[in-house]
Design a protein around this nucleic acid. Structure first.
Length: 416
RNA sequence: CGGGGAGUAGCGCAGUCCGGUAGCGCACCGCGUUUGGGACGCGGGGGUCGCAGGUUCAAAUCCUGUCUCCCCGACCA
């Protein structure tokens, strides 16, 4: 992408109405636009990050045989009434609306009931189980208070997966597979070392549900971690869990964290409440075991922005960066321009995402933008580099740039 | 929903206490000089001061109501 064609602009100043670092940086760098409290639009660069995160999640969900679909944002009250969750006193984050004929509708804050109801059409026999479906959906939640930038919004993108099983044992086995898949997701996002599977409060049919919490000062949960034993306990269930695990409270370190993933074992609760059964091998009608698995996609983007930024701006891990290379052309010399154009074409051709700063602005502004946007590599093409037949290469995480040949440049960027 | 803070040009702010008809920086437009860490000069455009009432000869400024945003708390299947 050529910078001269990118409609977004960077700003020298952070927005006054944001205190959260993730929102300040993302707005300053032109990744997101704030529409209202807790509601953000994703602009071209921000959208690329979202899509990159989604792709990693998608690959890992596919690897555990999840099948992608998209449910609807408009939902029927009847679907939720059977489990009692249409009631505002039970679920307090509902947005509700009406059709022109006055029919009441709900706006999707979750999809457990709709998924179960839809799956009833396809699952009647033990032969149809197990099965697992997932989606990336915009969830709408009427939160009392939005906060922390994109980390806690009223509208956000979530990956939610649902697995259906004939037996508790089968569910447990799959549940554990998904835990491993989730670990791979966070590993690939560069959050592996800071993300813990934690013990937290859960539904009526599990002792504990599992939360995935990333240590992050901007988070809103409090965690007690034992780094050596790789144990983390949510404050909510500390006393209970400490007893259960047989560990000493004093060994645990208190940290703030953000919940980036959450999995629940519903057992047969939903199935029984909704009256959805399958016929087992023995000809008997039996309830379906259900588990759900969420990952907050846009929240993850916020967590990454918070954790990896520095005083110059964002610092994206390569796996999700909106571009791999920020190509800064210095000066307007036709020969230099041609050299930069050629490098841009070559790298793009080789599959490298390049943000090419072809604007006629001073070097300092280009460097500042490259830093603010957090692009992993900065490559400079100038009169000097052209005459020396080199390119200047600098990693976002390094202080010093180095002069490299085209071969070295391509090698570093993984291009043959 | 309780407590606190704030709404003035696209963005960041001053002006409000003490009423007199709106200003600065960035961004934007034109011309010129610049070009390795957010350049400079000259010229220019843009705001009925969140909204609605009220007081007054006169309101960004005082009064009342209301909406929105931020922070803390409560809440977070």
């Amino acid at each position: 992408m050529r910078r001269s064609e990118l409609f977004t602009k960077t700003s020298k100043t952070a927005p006054a109405d944001e205190a959260a670092k993730n929102a300040q940086l993302l707005i300053q760098a032109g990744f997101v636009h704030k529409e209202m409290a807790g509601v953000y639009a994703y602009l071209p660069l921000g959208l690329r990050v979202v899509e990159n995160i989604k792709q990693i999640v998608r690959e890992e969900m596919n690897a555990v045989h999840g099948q992608e679909l998209i449910m609807t944002n408009l939902q029927r009250p009847e679907t939720w009434q059977v489990t009692g969750r249409w009631d505002d006193a039970v679920v307090d984050v509902w947005f509700k609306t009406r059709l022109q004929d006055d029919t009441e509708l709900g706006l999707a804050w979750s999809h457990e009931e709709p998924i179960m109801q839809m799956m009833q059409q396809f699952v009647q026999s033990y032969k149809d189980l197990p099965t697992s479906v997932y989606q990336f959906q915009t969830k709408l939640r009427n939160e009392l208070r939005a906060k922390s930038g994109i980390m806690r919004g009223r509208e956000f993108v979530m990956k939610d997966m649902y697995s259906l099983h004939a037996t508790a044992e089968d569910l447990d086995a799959y549940y554990n597979q998904v835990i491993e898949a989730y670990k791979r997701v966070f590993e690939r996002l560069g959050l592996g070392g800071e993300t813990y599977v934690t013990f937290a409060s859960g539904g009526a049919f599990t002792k504990f549900s599992h939360e995935f919490q990333t240590i992050c000062d901007a988070g809103e949960d409090v965690l007690y971690v034992h780094r050596d034993k790789n144990i983390a306990v949510n404050e909510e269930v500390l006393d209970e869990a400490v007893q259960e695990l047989g560990i000493n409270k004093d060994e645990l370190e208190q940290v703030k964290s953000a919940e980036v993933g959450n999995i629940f074992n519903f057992g047969t609760d939903k199935s029984e409440k909704m009256g959805i059964y399958f016929t087992d091998q023995d000809g008997q009608q039996k309830p379906i075991y259900l588990a759900s698995y969420g990952i907050g996609v846009t929240r993850l983007m916020g967590v990454v922005a918070e954790k990896f930024s520095d005083e110059h701006g964002l610092v994206w891990p390569q796996a999700i960066a909106p571009a791999q290379v920020y190509l800064a052309r210095l000066g307007e010399n036709p020969e230099t321009t041609q050299a930069a154009d050629e490098l841009y074409a070559d790298l793009t051709q080789a599959g490298v995402q390049v943000l090419y700063d072809d604007r006629d602005v001073r070097p300092g502004e280009k460097f500042a933008d490259a830093d603010l946007m957090g692009i992993p590599w900065r490559v400079v093409v100038s009169d000097k580099t052209r005459e020396a037949n080199t390119f200047e290469l600098k990693a976002r995480t390094e202080q010093e740039a180095r002069q490299v040949s085209l071969d070295e440049l391509q090698g570093t960027l993984g291009v043959s």
